[in-house]
């Protein structure tokens, strides 16, 4: 039961990501994003004017500049005015919004991008400010502290994990994706990566009210996205911390032989707010290049895997048609 019958078939038809940097090169948001937008347009042959909807994901706190997401709009040629939206979240959720927008039926293409500069700020402080403002933020536990609580809980529950998490390297980077509805997708991409399942679920924000040895939201999103309906060749998981992988593997129902994060994953490069979108892009790229038939991407947000998105991508005409009405 994927819940996808009657939906428009939509595919990831292009993906590009920056050469991520682990030090601040003085690049602006526009510098990061522009080459990628032009790359995905060139890959598909689509003109800017043919993009029906644009959606991005970023976080102004990363660089401490209000409305920094507006600066990135320079890269997409927003004149004459375009149909555009932004989420203050990982751009995987921008992709979700774009997918919903294409379901409306009046637009066939969407450009999605995300960017983040993790090297200029204090992410422990920035992440703390995104937690519960009454009970948690004043204590400034930070993302690593919160991850440590989950790592210890998993260790105590018998998982073979290091209870002292180390963070991924602070990273500057960006990613861009083009989504297209069925007919357009076939025209612009030799092997479209059809989205045959897409769902996201969230848990209570109070970490003390959750069972940190489970990820009920991942399990539910995976069920609704239909992860178990077929073999998974590759999975790209938004694991900023090592202990998250065995938990996510279990909740997603991945088989032992499913290769996780063949790209290197977030442990190798973590351009916050693009990291989740890159998982979808990498999972799609394995289908574009013919190395996989069916892949799964996961993105997460919030402390201790609070909010989880699961996307199933498939190759083949059948996958493209399965979702069409």
């Amino acid at each position: 039961m994927t819940g996808f019958h009657g939906r428009r078939g939509v595919a990831v038809v292009a993906f590009a990501q920056s050469e991520h940097s682990f030090s601040d090169l003085g690049w602006t948001e526009a510098d990061l994003v522009m080459p990628l937008v032009n790359e995905v347009l060139a890959t598909t042959g689509l003109r800017r004017s043919e993009i029906g909807f644009t959606c991005s994901g970023s976080n102004d706190y990363l660089v401490g500049t209000p409305f920094s997401f507006v600066a990135a709009l320079d890269t997409i040629g927003a004149w004459p005015p375009i149909s555009e939206s932004h989420v203050e979240q990982d751009a995987a959720w921008a992709l979700y919004e774009a997918w919903v927008r294409i379901q409306h039926g009046d637009v066939d293409t969407a450009l999605v991008y995300g960017f983040g500069k993790g090297t200029v700020g204090d992410y422990a402080g920035i992440s703390s400010l995104s937690y519960d403002p009454y009970y948690i933020a004043p204590l400034m536990p930070g993302d690593i502290g919160m991850a440590g609580l989950q790592a210890r809980a998993l260790k105590d529950a018998g998982f073979d994990v290091d209870p002292d998490p180390t963070p991924p390297p602070a990273t500057d980077g960006a990613a861009a994706v083009i989504l297209a509805a069925a007919d357009v997708a076939r025209g612009v991409c030799p092997r479209p990566a059809w989205i045959t399942g897409l769902d996201h679920r969230i848990e209570p924000h109070s970490v003390g009210a959750r069972d940190l040895t489970r990820s009920a939201s991942t399990r539910q999103a995976a069920l609704r996205a239909g992860v178990s309906a077929g073999p998974v060749d590759f999975a790209e998981l938004h694991t900023r911390f090592e202990h998250e992988e065995p938990l996510l593997r279990r909740e997603l129902g991945l088989e032992e032989d499913t290769v996780v994060n063949a790209s290197g994953g977030p442990r190798k490069a973590d351009p916050i707010m693009a990291t989740g979108l890159i998982r979808i892009g990498e999972a799609a790229a394995r289908i574009h290049d013919g190395s996989a038939r069916r892949t799964v991407a996961h993105a997460t947000a919030g402390p201790c895997l609070q909010h989880n998105l699961v996307c199933v991508l498939e190759a083949g005409e059948e996958a493209g048609e399965a979702g069409e009405d």
Partner: peptide, 10 residues
Amino acid sequence: SRLEYRLRGG
């Protein structure tokens, strides 16, 4: 709340 950044001009 207070956050500190180190920025480079480009």
